[in-house]
């Protein structure tokens, strides 16, 4: 994961290819995310979104190419990565300590407020609903107030109100200079909450630009979601 190319962007992929045996999950993917930008990665199932995010997060090594990522990059995985036998607060406290957050208790309290889980703080995670688990999962990624953040389908199991809270919070982070890269299947979300979208399909980066540019590339009277589907269709996906 050496930095092979001079770049000022906090997040970048440089000609990343990832092979699982014969199957290519990513093919020669390159992009940069400037500081403070909110970028959505969209694409069909199996497109390579999770693979891309986990390579950026440093969990997997690319087969070829390299990535640029800041130390202490925040990461919210697609599958909740939390201890189901611990309570919500214990999970948060543990990771706050492992992340060496200055004031773990304050960070935990803040995250409980942010995720609206104060009343469930002392419940074991195994007793929470799927959406609430996802909220804990997200909270852990945000604990250390990272300068850049990766979220893999963060909103997928959240109810509309929680979704709203989440994007509001992430938007604030973006305004505060935090670089955010997230994947989603909710294309409308990408349209509303992303400065730029990356379209991945079959491991290939097909498009990188603003939602408006993507829309403009297809028939003018299509909404963003239909434009996205049409875009993929034109390219054989």
């Amino acid at each position: 994961m050496a930095i092979t190319q001079q770049t000022l962007a906090p997040l970048a992929a440089i000609a990343v290819t990832k092979l699982y045996g014969q199957r290519a999950a990513l093919r020669d993917v390159s992009f940069e995310v400037p500081a403070g930008e909110l970028v959505a990665v969209i694409g069909p199932n199996g497109a390579g979104k999770t693979t891309l995010l986990s390579i950026l997060a440093g969990i997997q090594a690319p087969t070829q190419g390299s990535v640029v990522a800041p130390a202490g990059l925040g990461w919210v995985p697609q599958q909740p990565a939390i201890y189901s036998k611990l309570t919500v607060a214990e999970n948060l406290r543990l990771f706050a300590r492992l992340e060496r957050v200055d004031d773990p208790e304050a960070a935990v309290a803040a995250m409980l407020v942010q995720t609206d889980l104060e009343d469930r703080a002392d419940d074991q995670v195994s007793t929470l609903s799927g959406g609430n688990r996802q909220r804990v999962n997200i909270a852990i990624g945000l604990l250390a107030e990272p300068s850049a953040l990766l979220l893999d389908e963060p909103s997928s199991s959240l109810d509309p109100r929680q979704r709203e809270r989440l994007w509001e919070f992430i938007g604030e982070l973006g305004h505060g200079g935090t670089t955010v890269l997230y994947s989603t299947h909710n294309v409308a979300e990408a349209e509303r909450y992303a400065d730029r979208v990356l379209v991945l399909a079959d491991g290939e980066l097909l498009f990188a630009g603003s939602p408006r540019e993507l829309q403009a590339g297809t028939d003018a009277d299509l909404d963003f979601e239909s434009a996205f589907v049409a875009f993929l269709h034109e390219r054989g996906h």
Partner: peptide
């Protein structure tokens, strides 16, 4: 629990 990746 998927925490392995988080920890390492």
């Amino acid at each position: 629990e998927n925490t392995f990746s988080r920890l390492v």
